[in-house]
Nucleic acid binder design. Structure first.
Length: 259
DNA sequence: ATGACTAAACCTTTTAGA
């Protein structure tokens, strides 16, 4: 089973690229973030013709997430139960032939800058997510928590760790929450394998950042203890970042054997 | 240079992203 996450930064603009990517990478599950559209605009029919079931949770202009799957899913949940939020950031479902893999796909808050109201919202959102994921893990041992986290784990995820020290995506407060998720019994699938140094999942549109590989690794796939032994690969696909009108994020793909 | 691109909307200017 292959599971992927991709922040497309407007599905309206990126739909042709998503369809092209799925044709070349027929993953079983794809989580999308930053749809930037309401559900009545969501391209259910185009995705159905591409062979995917789709569940969307969108809103106007900002945020918005979706889960695309080759086979039908069950128990779709939108946002974080127990955490009141007027933004569309999370969608989860039971996937796989046995329906025993819980996939949670999220668009984590950006946070703007430390000390801002948006940063405080990011901190409370992360706490709300963790409290819910703890109970989800107890109910679903086989669990994947993936998406645009908007947090780097450490300096290895940052093109300029000195210049970005203490800046948004790189603060100790954000990384504390990321480690607290790991402490629930989750593992960063990407770091289960050796990868080249300076591997990132996002590059600024400005200043030729992609060509200069000035990026951040902020899109992650975390797998539970029960799934960790099944992970056979995890890769960032940089190819779509070279498209015309690309998303600023690249897809991340994990392969689970025996599912 | 609180800049550089990109996207959406209240659309020739602002807000947000990361």
């Amino acid at each position: 089973m292959k599971i992927a996450t991709w922040n497309v930064n407007s599905l309206t603009v990126r739909l042709p690229q998503v369809l092209d990517w799925l044709q070349a990478n027929p993953v079983d599950v794809l989580g999308l973030q930053e749809l930037k559209m309401t559900d009545d605009k969501f391209p259910f029919e185009a995705l159905r013709q591409a062979g995917y079931h789709a569940h969307a949770f969108g809103q106007k202009t900002y945020n918005g997430v979706a889960l695309l799957t080759r086979t039908p899913v069950a128990n779709v949940v939108r946002n974080i139960p127990g955490f009141s939020d007027d933004m569309a950031r999370v969608i989860s479902a039971d996937v796989g032939d046995a329906g025993d893999v819980r996939v949670i796909a999220g668009y984590f808050p950006n946070g703007q800058e430390p000390g801002s109201d948006k940063f405080e919202y990011k901190m409370s959102w992360l706490k709300g997510l963790r409290d819910w994921v703890r109970t989800e893990l107890a109910a679903h041992p086989k669990l994947v928590l993936m998406g645009d986290y908007n947090i780097t784990f450490d300096d290895a995820d940052v093109w300029d760790p000195v210049g970005m020290e203490g800046q948004i995506h790189c603060t100790e407060e954000e990384r504390y929450h990321l480690r607290a998720l790991i402490a629930l019994g989750l593992h960063d699938a990407y770091r289960l394998f050796a990868h080249p140094e300076k591997s990132y999942s996002w590059w600024d549109y400005r200043d030729f950042a992609f060509r200069r590989n000035r990026g951040l690794r902020i899109d992650h796939i975390l797998v539970s203890d029960a799934l960790k032994p099944l992970v056979s690969s995890c890769e960032i696909d940089k190819a779509p970042r070279s498209n015309e009108r690309p998303s600023d994020h690249a897809p991340v793909v994990v392969e689970l054997s025996g599912l």
